[in-house]
Amino acid sequence: MDSLVYSLWALLPSFCNYPVDTVESFADLGRILCGVLQTQAETHGIICASLNILIQQNKEVVEGKEVPTNDASPAMQRATARYDSQHAAANLKVLRLCAPKLLDVLSRIFHECSKDDGGSLQVIKNLRWLAGYSITLHR
């Protein structure tokens, strides 16, 4: 039963793979993830990986890095085609709104846990970058 719950959670990084509704739905997801991070320790790794994917993919599009689509599946090509720099910038703006809260929860967890359960340091780094993103944007 617990492994089924874990398998369901393990789908989160895939859903964070070029999602279509980050602007509309991330606020809700962010709120849920903050709650889950505090109560369910076994999901830390998955949530960190998911946030990393979300931030990283949008960041790459905004910075103009080419996403290699030559040998990608049609679904992947369709999903990445939707991500232009404007779309990604709007996504990052919404992500940034939730960043302080997530950063707060994650750094507390990071300080409490003795071991880094995969990617939490990376996600803290990404969230810090995101928090400072507005400064670089308005300059």
Binding site: L8, A10, S14, F15, P19, D21, T22, S25, I32
Partner: peptide, 23 residues
């Protein structure tokens, strides 16, 4: 896990998360 790309985050929060809670 392998083939989901370009899905909706709201589908995760509505459908999958409610499955997690039920389980």
């Amino acid at each position: 896990k392998q083939y989901t790309v370009g899905g909706r985050l709201s589908f995760f929060t509505e459908a999958i998360f409610s499955m997690v809670e039920t389980m």
